[in-house]
Design a protein around this nucleic acid. Sequence first.
DNA 1: ACTGGACTTGACGTCGGCGTCAAGGCGGAG
DNA 2: CTCCGCCTTGACGCCGACGTCAAGTCCAGT
Lengths: 123, 123
Amino acid sequence: MRIGELARQSGTTTRALRYYESLGLLRARRGANGQREYDEADLRLVTEIRSLTGIGFALEDTRPFVECLRDGHPSGDACPASVAVYRRKLAELDECIERLEAARSRVRTQLAEAEKRSRPCAR
Amino acid sequence: MRIGELARQSGTTTRALRYYESLGLLRARRGANGQREYDEADLRLVTEIRSLTGIGFALEDTRPFVECLRDGHPSGDACPASVAVYRRKLAELDECIERLEAARSRVRTQLAEAEKRSRPCAR
DNA sequence: ACTGGACTTGACGTCGGCGTCAAGGCGGAG
DNA sequence: CTCCGCCTTGACGCCGACGTCAAGTCCAGT
């Protein structure tokens, strides 16, 4: 399968796939005419990358998962490095959510006060 | 007061202040030698900008608050446009938090499964 | 032979909020 | 006079994940 077909099947673009390759996340064999040639294993890799970035992982964070799959593991998170990324990401998410909730409560307070001032004798 | 002093008092940098001016958020009078001259009202504006961006507001989102203050209102959120930004921001925060919590639960699930696979007979 | 689509590499653009460097002006202290 | 610290404008750099354009190659269909 060539790059256009892989893009279609993985729901991304050829540009993104070449970008992944430039980062070393993806490696393509080349046909006689110099065009990239992919197989089902590559589709699996891209699927893994996409599902992780879809959750909010940075591309660099997907690297352990990709390498894990390339090492022959059936699942990208079967390796300790991937699990470590999970943990780190969980901590990041916790902290981020915490900050956002704090911001939300501040905004709510501000909004309530602003409305109180604009309608001092609200019905 | 000149730009360095304003930066110190507002806890930011001269670069940031000039940037705010380039966006039209801040307007400086110029002294005889061409240097920017600020007063307490300007400090108030910068303080407003900083406290809002500190919560997570984009600079453009602070514009209504700044203009509200410049219109002579004692509080930056005394104007309808500011309150509208509050509401929009609240909705944004809600959605963002929701997405992050969804991501977190997915990561948690993945992590739990990965650990189950790596230690099938965990004690 | 020609057209059209898919492919190649290379390189610049995008968004936000500044950081940082360049190159110079201005004013007060020693 | 020199030095130092503050100020000025202009312009490029950064981060991430690509989008988009340029200019050319390759192949299948008619």
